[in-house]
Structures are given as structure tokens and as C-alpha cells.
Nucleic acid binder design. Sequence first.
DNA 1: ATGAAAGCGCTAACAG
DNA 2: CTGTTAGCGCTTTCAT
Lengths: 325, 325
Amino acid sequence: MVDVATLAGVSLKTVSRVVNNTPNVQPELVERVLAAVAELGFRRNHLASSLRSGQTTATIGLLIEEIANPFYAAIAGAAAEVARRHDTMLIIASSEEDPAREQQLLRDMCARRVDGLLVVPAGHDHSFLRAEVELGTPMVFLDRPPGGVLADTVLLDNRGGARAGVGRLVEAGHRRIAILLDSIGVYTMRERLDGAQDALAPTGAPYDTRLVREGIRDPAAASRVVAELLDQPDPPTAFFSMNNRITLGVVEELCRRGSDAALVGFDDFDLARLMPYPLTVIAYDTRELARTAAELLFRRIEGDRSWPRTVVLPTELVERGVPPR
Amino acid sequence: MVDVATLAGVSLKTVSRVVNNTPNVQPELVERVLAAVAELGFRRNHLASSLRSGQTTATIGLLIEEIANPFYAAIAGAAAEVARRHDTMLIIASSEEDPAREQQLLRDMCARRVDGLLVVPAGHDHSFLRAEVELGTPMVFLDRPPGGVLADTVLLDNRGGARAGVGRLVEAGHRRIAILLDSIGVYTMRERLDGAQDALAPTGAPYDTRLVREGIRDPAAASRVVAELLDQPDPPTAFFSMNNRITLGVVEELCRRGSDAALVGFDDFDLARLMPYPLTVIAYDTRELARTAAELLFRRIEGDRSWPRTVVLPTELVERGVPPR
DNA sequence: ATGAAAGCGCTAACAG
DNA sequence: CTGTTAGCGCTTTCAT
């Protein structure tokens, strides 16, 4: 900047004014400065400017589990769009579901003085962020609630969605309904399981724990569990899958066998219409989830100091056919 | 840091040493400093440290078209993984295929003094980056070559892949092969078209421009084009689709009609096995593309000053059946 | 409307 | 092993 000022024959401060589009600079000087900027290939150092001015880095951080996963990619896309409207850059980091890594990444983002944080929690204890929150760094949690810190949270109606999905199977006459889920350690899975039980309770059907299978991490595992369940003496007549990876494996195995068991899955599919199986699902708007969270965050960044709130977004039962019992 | 130093009764510099894990500090002092850090909730300002030390911000920028797109999400995932291994944060920005926006974003990233840039080009002229390159900011282009600037580039063998795909259709006896593509303005599409023509040329079949359809932006448009082509007096017996959005629309329309036309598509699908149609595709390793680019970038960041190179990654014909003519 | 001086929070260079 | 001093590139404050 000193070089530019020298070349343009003005003071350093005038260069700063021109570079920042401050009004009240003589057009002639503006031109001279701009010429010098071009000639020297000057590029403003954003770090230095936000170091001195102190308030904003025009950057927010997004912490997710894994960017290659379509769910998180959708979140990142919606967050990026909102960030863009606020002329803000987005730092994206993946926790890989590792709480230690989550903590390290969040600390690092804070050290970079992001203006705010959008977090899909991996761990259950976020009290280490309390100091940061008190220091005034806004943060919004999404998809899962934080632990040990009071902050804005945007969630899906997991319980209501699962209740509706299993309810639909009950309505179709099913009583032996297998429930397939990933780790019970994850908040969303616990909520969905509660919802499933809400729907099952009024039927008076005995709650058969052998029909609830936990720890299914991928489609292949889901296929194996389905095979095992169908080979039992008293097989289930319907399946409730708690995420789309599992649903995929269930579809594969049901098709392989030409089974007429019913299936309802949590999470919608891009290609559901082309599936060789009527796929009724519980859908929700992932982008809306992220958009809501990001907009809440920017409201905070712009100075909103109201009490933290929790927003719950609805889910929708997308009916594509449910074979009766 | 001054406060921490005062509280711990040491100099500012000692605090700096402790915070940076510099060896050769008395354990006792380390402890006192750490206690003060904890008590005051001190968090090192990463911006200030990289402003002064000047060399590295431990940040790289990734410019893509749109993060929610699975192709770019895969790229982002692989890049994030390499960045992570180098303890580097990733700023991701989406150009939305707008060259003006691309330029603005890249300039902004440079202003933030990223250590390097990973770019999937949207525009055709990147000469505005030349000053930046000369100033020593490493950058690697991927999926498409840059224009007007010499830099490392990692590409797929688009031409070879298309040649193999269309070649497979020719081998199955097809001569009237419809070719469906997105915008001809995109490098990858032009390359793939060249490859298709490579395969068609030796057959001596007249090159029928009515069978080459450009400007297909989404599955619905692809379905419409397929319908139109099949309703012609002399319909094609095979389709070559140049990306997976198009392939999807082709599959839908072929299924709807129960057509036995052959189909080969560029880009693989997650759910190809479950498709109601034998889907032979040209596959490639998207993550490998990004990994290669990111590793090249870090080699540059670490000081490699060798002449820029271009790497071309192979594609693979994944055979899932091709109906003969 | 323009400029001079101070300083953001940190690290480099050099002493002690 | 520890401290002092200067200064990264910019913006703020206050003068002119």
C-alpha cells in the first residue's frame, strides 16, 4: 500500500480510502490510485484489514460430518448460498463423527475469528464453546442439539416423521414391523425410534425387541439383516428403515427375493421413482434446514441478542404405495 | 497475550513460545502460562500470527461450480481429506458457472492469502490470475484446463472414455447412435464429442447431425429428446449420453416405452445396479481426480518449483450389458 | 477532502 | 532459556 501511495503521489490513507470505496475522494486521485494499483498488481490483504478493524472477517465456519455425503452436501450448498448473499466466505470442515476432531476444528475456526459458526454436532458435550459464546461468537446448531451450551438450534421433526411412517404401516394392517437403524448413539436415531414406538404403542402389539436392529452402517449390512429377519420362523411383514443407506440395502434384498413385505424409509431418494419397489418415505427439506440455520446465524451476526431459540422443521410422508399385510 | 503474560508474570514472548509449543521453555513457566491462558480464556488470533509470520495461513481455497452437486461434493471431500492431512483448512466457494463470479471469488481468496488454490474453471480466461501466480500463489486446475495461465492441471481422459463407450456400441452392431450432450461450451463435453466421433469415423456410417443433440440441461429435457428421436421415421438404435443427468432421463423414457435401444452413459451412478435397465457406463474416480490435484498443490506449497505439468487420469468402461442392434 | 501517527495481536531478530 | 524491540499491512483517530 505504501508503494501504491508513493507511485500515485498520495498518502497511504488515500489509497486505503480508494481501495475501500470510501466516498469523498477526488475523482482525479481515485484514478491515479487505481492506476498505481493496477500497475503494481496490488492486492489488499484481507487478514491485515480485519486484524485492525477487528470486527468482521466476512467468514463463517460450517462443521459437518463429511462433505461427500449428499445430506451434508445439501446443507453446505444451502449454507453457501446464504453466506454468499451476505458476501461471506465459508470454511467447511468435516468432523468425521469424531468429537475430539470436532473440538479441535471448532477451536481452530474460532482462532481464525470467523464471524459465526454453523455446527452439526458430532460429540455430546460442547461446553468448551461456552467461553466463545460469551465472548460473542454467534453459533447455530443444526440437525442435532448441542450439549452443555445454550445456542440457537434447528432440528427436524424426527419423532413426528417416524410416528407418521410407522403409523402408515400400522394403518395398512402390519403388526410385525422390523425397525432398522444405525447407531443408537445418534440423537436423530433415538428420536426416530421414539416416534416409531409412539405409533406402535396403541396397536397393543407386543413390542418385540428382536425386530429392532441397531448398528447397521451400510446397505450391505442392511441386506444381511433383512435376509436374517425374513428367514426367521415368524418373519416381519413390514420394514421401517431409519435412513436412506439402510433403505437401499432393504430394497436390494427385498427385490432379490421378490418379497412383498412393505417398506417405509426415513430420508427421500433422488431416484426413488426409478426404484424397482414402491418406496414410501419420510421426506424433509434439507436445504431449508440449513437455510434456516444460516439465516438465524446472520441475524445474530448482525446484532440480534434475543434469547436463543429452537426451531423444529416438519417432515412429510411421501406416499408411493404400501403393500397391505 | 499481554494480559496472559502479566498474569503469569512472564514476558509476552514467553507466552508466544508456550502457545506455539516452542521447545526450550522451563516446564514451570509453561505451567504458569497455561494456567493464565485457561483462566483468561485466551485464544490465539490466527490472523495476527499469519500476518506477522507472513508465510502461511494454513488455508487453501477450492473453487467449484456448486457444492450440492454430487460430483463436486466428491471433489470437496477428497480435497478436504488431503487438506486435513496437511493441517489446513478449506474455504469452498461456488462459481455457479458464472465467470464473473469465479473471478471475484478467486480474487477474494487471494486477498485472504490462501496458501494455494484448487480450481474447477468456470470461465475460459484466467489471465487475471497471472500476477498471482507470479507472486507465488500455487494453483492447480482440475477437470478442465485454465485459459491464459500456465499452471498444473489434472484432467480426465474424456476423449478416450467417450471413444471406448461409443466404440462398445459400434462393436454391438449399432450404427445409428444418438449423442446427447449438455452445453458444447464446456470443455469436457467437447472432448467427449471428439471421442465419440473418433469411434464413429471408422464405421463409415454417415455422420448424421440430427442424431447429435446439444443443450440438454436436465433429465426431463433428455426424456423429451429421446421421445422425439424414437418417433422419427428412422430412429436411432442406441444412445450415448454424455453425463449422468442426461442418462437418467434417457433411462426413464426408454423404460416408459419398453424400448430395447442400447444405452451407454458417461459418469457412473450410485444406484446403477438397481436401475431397471442395463446401464453400461464410462466411470472414473472423482476422488482420485481431486486427491491428485490437492497433492500436487501441497507439493507446490511445500516449495516444488518445477515446470507445471498436466496429468490425465484414465476412465473405465463399466460393462453392464449392451443390447445388440 | 487529505494526511500523520498510533496500534490491531502477533512473531522475528537479536540481545542478554 | 528469556526478554526487548521492531514491524507484518492495514484502519482508526485526529489533525489539517
